[in-house]
Simulated assay, not measured.
Amino acid sequence: MEADRAKEAQTAVRNALDSLVVAANAAGWSTHEIILAIIEAGTFLKDANTADPDPAEDFAINDVAREQIGHGEQYD
């Protein structure tokens, strides 16, 4: 069920974020600083997903370069 998956995802993310905050605190970052960084990173990921919801379908940069070899492109 979709609601169960969402709850499982939230739990997994919360656990990972809790571990990240603990590690960041141990490295000298404040919880507030890390929370702000997490929010910014989350916003970036959300925007990137909105722009390209399935990046796995995109060519990797190395694949693009490989496709251009021998075709008079800049990677020759």
Rank of each mutant, 00 (worst) to 15 (best):
K7N: 08
N49T: 08
H71N: 11
A60M: 13
E57F: 11
G72N: 10
A3G: 05
A24P: 00
A65Q: 09
A26H: 02
S19T: 12
A26I: 08
V64E: 11
A60S: 15
Q74G: 13
I38Q: 08
N62S: 15
A41H: 12
V21R: 04
D76M: 13
R5Y: 01
Q74N: 11
N25K: 15
D18F: 04
D4R: 10
H71C: 03
D52F: 12
H71D: 09
G28M: 03
P53Y: 05
R5H: 03
N15P: 00
V13M: 05
Y75I: 12
E2A: 04
M1D: 08
V64M: 06
I39Y: 07
M1T: 05
A3W: 08
M1P: 03
A24I: 01
I39C: 02
G28Q: 05
A24Q: 12
A26T: 10
V13A: 02
W29S: 13
D52E: 15
N25D: 09
A6W: 04
E67R: 10
L36G: 02
Y75E: 14
F44Y: 15
D52T: 15
D63G: 10
E57L: 12
K7A: 13
G72L: 07
I39F: 10
N62L: 12
L45N: 04
E8V: 00
N49C: 06
D63P: 00
S19E: 14
P55N: 07
A24R: 14
G70D: 09
E73H: 14
A27F: 00
I61E: 14
I69V: 09
D63N: 05
D47P: 02
A37G: 02
R5N: 05
A9P: 07
A3D: 12
R66S: 08
I35A: 06
V13R: 02
N15D: 10
F59I: 05
M1S: 10
I35F: 03
A26Y: 02
L36Q: 13
D58Q: 11
D63E: 14
I39R: 07
I34K: 02
L20Y: 06
V22L: 00
V21S: 01
S19F: 09
A60I: 05
N62P: 04
W29Y: 15
V22S: 04
L17D: 01
A51G: 08
G28F: 08
Q10M: 11
D54G: 01
P53F: 01
A26V: 13
A65R: 11
I61T: 13
A51R: 07
R5V: 02
E33Q: 13
V22F: 06
T43K: 12
Q68S: 09
L17Q: 02
T31R: 12
A16T: 00
G70L: 03
E57H: 14
G42C: 03
D18E: 10
I69E: 03
V22C: 06
A65H: 03
I38S: 05
A24D: 01
G42L: 08
N15K: 06
L20I: 02
S30I: 02
S19M: 11
V21K: 01
D58L: 07
Q68D: 09
K46S: 09
I38L: 14
L17Y: 00
D63K: 06
A51K: 14
F59E: 15
V21W: 03
H71T: 10
I39S: 00
